[in-house]
Write a protein that binds this DNA or RNA. Structure first.
Length: 589
DNA sequence: TCGGATGAACGATAGAGTAG
DNA sequence: GCTACTCTATCGTTCATCCG
């Protein structure tokens, strides 16, 4: 079975191009003829491939191979911009720069789009795509209003679009960040969302020349999904794009910026949403839920897809309580605790399914089509084990922050790890703070009353040994903060500390610590006279839990920096902290 | 900004190498 | 010479920001 991801679409937005792509599956369309007779012979240099693509297009019925539709990427060493046309769908789209074909990723996006909203149909076994009745109708329609009508019903069969409409339903005016945060995997890998107030802070603290690029370059995947879906919905009149003024406080000053990617529902949107739910005389709209849309990224992708898929099956049009869902999962070789199931239900809701909760349990009352769960048994990795273990211990901290575990172990996610760590400390907890994180600035700082902490984040899949150059960098920051001399560092990052902060500590945060890090912690303290510590992501979350539950006071929390690794030992029901630390290699996959 | 475009991470896979 | 396994180079998939 081919590895595919469906349901989440990054690039496509133009209805015209969407129609071109669906038209590829209609032998009578002009696009079909042009691709077959002109574009492929001209654009595909590799003659073997050209013949393959042409004979694929001449098949009857027209059920085409996903790989040949999408095409492939580049040979190693090549630039993407130099890639030749290698797929049928690539040839269906003329690019922004005026090139006669697009790249494999955008082609993949258009295929995903057509499949996800039911204009195209995907066969998981054969890895092929064909056109649906609705797709045929879309290709044949040749004016704007019927197009819109078809697309509205297509979008209403796409759960993430229903999710966006539902979030806006009560009249809220939401930005792409506010929507993205509540869409899909809720912050997990593949669904990153930028915390809005950190975005505002970043723009406000940046030099004028940098503001525009921060605006255009700071966008998580989920934020982007929200922007694209809202964009489609606004083109068919279900939502309206209205600039929103948002604000946040840094210190005692309130900063305001405008975010253009903000949306409201329209009257038509409310009406169509009701119709999709079957609340009028219309029948309920079927929901297209491919197994391939239940998770998108990471080693545990297939395991999570199965877990979510079985939970959906368990309660689709049948009410079950948590215990019964748990046993249903067990029958399908998935052993999970209640907390995990509760969190998964939130994700299922955030994907856009209609989850109802009553005294007797949970039910999804959508008519779900296309959901087929493969029978192969998959076990979870140690990172997911850790995540689910910590999940079970967090009663106060929002489980969204479990994403920190993914990020800490994902060596490529350093920036997001910094952002989400500061987000946890200032938005979920009561610290004041800022994420700094540019060159010659610490990753972030936090404070509470007179106490301040300089924070350094490092995401590493195999653990962090705090090398001496990183320790020296921390020493430099501590000394810069002590002398506060503009001549030494002109960016004056220390001014982001509240004025009353007098006592300072430092902190390293990573997946887990190993090697010589303890000596380097002591080295930092000896050199600067400032005490600090290192905390692994697991204990960071327990630390947050202790603070949020009130079992640990903010003032007392500053006594924990004693130039060693910080364990949250007082944690109830957690007697094996030390053991877990000694077994750290256990999580170092 | 809109509507994609890009470089890169990382898993999958095929072919080369090798122990037995 | 052959099988079964490992090791490596390349390929394919999918972001997570980037950008004309």
């Amino acid at each position: 079975m081919a590895e595919r991801t469906l349901g989440w679409i990054q690039n496509p937005s133009s209805f015209e191009n969407l129609k071109n792509v669906v038209s590829v599956f209609d032998k009578n369309s002009d696009i079909y003829k042009e691709i077959l007779n002109t574009k492929l012979p001209k654009l595909v240099k590799d003659l073997d491939l050209q013949n393959k693509l042409i004979s694929e297009l001449e098949k009857d019925p027209l059920e085409m191979d996903y790989v040949l539709l999408k095409g492939h990427g580049i040979k190693s060493g090549q630039k993407r911009a130099d890639a030749e046309c290698s797929g049928i769908v690539q040839a269906a789209i003329t690019t922004q720069g005026g090139r006669a074909y697009t790249d494999d990723w955008t082609a993949d996006g258009f295929l995903r789009w057509g499949i996800s909203i039911g204009l195209l149909d995907y066969d998981t076994e054969k890895d092929t795509v064909s056109i649906t009745k609705l797709g045929e109708k879309f290709v044949k329609s040749n004016s704007e209003d019927p197009d819109k009508e078809i697309l509205i019903s297509a979008f209403l069969s796409y759960p993430p679009a229903v999710r966006i409409l539902t979030l806006l339903e009560n009249g809220d005016h939401l930005t792409k960040f506010e929507l993205g945060k509540q869409l899909g995997g809720l912050g997990e890998a593949g669904f990153t969302s930028i915390p809005q107030d950190l975005y505002i802070q970043a723009i406000e603290l940046a030099a004028d020349k940098d503001k525009a690029s921060i605006r255009s370059n700071t966008e998580g995947s989920a934020d982007k999904y929200a922007r694209m879906i809202s964009g489609w919905l606004s083109k068919v009149g279900l939502v309206q794009r209205v600039t929103k003024e948002v604000s946040t406080k840094i210190g005692n000053i309130e900063y305001k910026i405008n975010i253009g990617h903000s949306f409201r529902i329209t009257l038509l949107g409310i009406k169509e949403l009701k119709r999709a739910r079957g609340l009028s005389s219309y029948p309920k709209t079927d929901k297209i839920v491919y197994w391939q849309m239940l998770a998108t990224k990471g080693k545990d992708r297939d395991y999570i897809r199965n877990r979510r898929g079985h939970i959906i099956k368990a309660i689709n049009n049948r009410e079950r309580n948590l215990e019964n869902i748990k046993s249903y999962l067990l029958e399908n070789d998935i052993k999970e605790n209640i907390t995990t199931i509760e969190d998964e239900l939130k994700v299922i809701e955030a994907i856009g399914l209609s989850l109802k909760h009553s005294r007797n349990g949970y039910v999804i009352d959508d008519n779900i089509i296309k959901l087929e769960i493969p029978r192969t048994k998959i076990s979870k990795t140690n990172v997911l084990e850790l995540k689910d273990k910590v999940r079970n211990k967090l009663k106060y901290v929002d489980h969204r922050y479990l994403a920190l575990i993914d990020l800490a172990y994902d060596g490529t996610a350093n920036r997001d790890f910094e952002i989400q760590t500061i987000d946890l400390l200032i938005n979920e907890l009561k610290f004041k703070g800022v994420r700094l994180g540019e060159s010659r600035k610490p990753d972030g700082i936090i404070s509470y009353d007179i106490n301040g902490v300089i924070i350094d984040n490092k995401s590493y899949s195999t653990g962090y040994n705090l090398p001496i150059n990183q320790a020296d960098e921390m020493i430099r920051y501590i000394e810069e903060n002590q002398t506060r001399d503009e001549k030494i560092n002109s960016n004056k990052w220390w001014e982001s500390f509240d004025e009353k902060v007098k006592d300072f500590n430092y902190l390293f945060v990573s997946s887990f610590f190993k090697g010589n890090f303890k000596n380097n912690l002591k080295h930092i303290a000896n050199r600067t006279g400032v005490n600090g510590g290192a905390i692994n992501v697991e204990n960071l979350l327990y630390f947050a839990e202790e603070l949020k539950s009130g079992r640990l006071s903010y003032v007392d929390s500053f006594t924990m920096y004693d130039n060693d690794e910080i364990y949250v030992g007082s944690f109830t029901d957690y007697s094996n902290v030390k053991i877990a630390a000694e077994e750290e290699s256990h999580y170092s996959i």
